[in-house]
């Protein structure tokens, strides 16, 4: 009996999801802090958002993304607040792919998702960093690269989009790989409590 599943906001924002959103925001913030602690040249503030998107769809992921940047803006660096739009966009894109069940072990689907996420990031983050911050973003390594490119006479749009593309390609791939690794470890009885969790259980419902 194959039925097309209809998605409702009420299902997406279930009790368990409500409790998961804070955890995933915390994952994003803590991920960012671990990156700073280990001094890696990426952001990794997207893992929780992708995780929520995979478990319960686009809207919860958008909420997670917005909250993440708000919280990091308050506690860490106020200049991150405008990039909430980027996080929300990435969450929505990842959530839509999750509903289409594209998060599977087929590698080309994952590549498409990464590219879509990078595209969403560039469409939203690059205009913000160009108009609000003159091309300089929070990431130290990228800012230096952009400054060097600007000094050598590159167009500002080319410099920002170019560096954004490479850094985000790396960043989003890592985020998706880690989210997958996390979902593989979570037991089935926890997974089925989420609206999309049944896509990732080891035993399929018949």
């Amino acid at each position: 009996m194959e039925k097309t599943k209809r998605y409702s906001l009420k299902d997406d924002f279930s009790m368990v999801t409500l409790l998961t959103i804070p955890i995933c925001v915390a994952i994003n913030v803590v991920g960012d802090q671990i990156v700073q602690l280990l001094k890696l040249p990426v952001f990794l503030d997207m893992i929780g958002t992708v995780l929520v998107a995979m478990l319960s769809g686009p809207w919860t992921a958008a909420v997670t993304g917005i909250l993440t940047n708000l919280v990091m803006g308050i506690t860490d660096n106020p200049t991150l607040i405008p990039f909430a739009i980027t996080s929300a966009a990435c969450g929505i894109v990842a959530g839509i792919f999750a509903r289409k069940k594209w998060f599977s072990t087929q590698k080309w689907k994952l590549v498409v998702i990464v590219l879509a996420l990078v595209l969403a990031t560039i469409c939203t983050a690059s205009p913000i960093s160009i108009f609000a911050f003159g091309g300089i973003s929070g990431n130290g390594g990228q800012s230096v690269a952009i400054a060097a490119l600007l000094a050598s006479g590159t167009n500002i749009i080319a410099a920002v989009v170019g560096t954004d593309f490479w850094i985000n390609l790396l960043d989003r791939s890592i985020a998706i790989i880690i989210s997958f690794a996390i979902i593989k470890v979570i037991p089935d009885r926890t997974l089925i409590k989420y609206s999309l969790g049944a896509n990732f259980t080891r035993k399929k419902a018949e």
């Binding site: 368990v16 955890i23 994952i27 671990i34 995780l51 880690i178 690794a181 996390i182 926890t190």
Partner: peptide
């Protein structure tokens, strides 16, 4: 070192949700 820190952290938190 990032992965062995991240995964136990997240999975622990997710299991507490119930």
């Amino acid at each position: 070192a990032f992965i062995p820190i991240m995964i136990p952290l997240v999975v622990n938190a997710m299991l507490e949700v119930g």
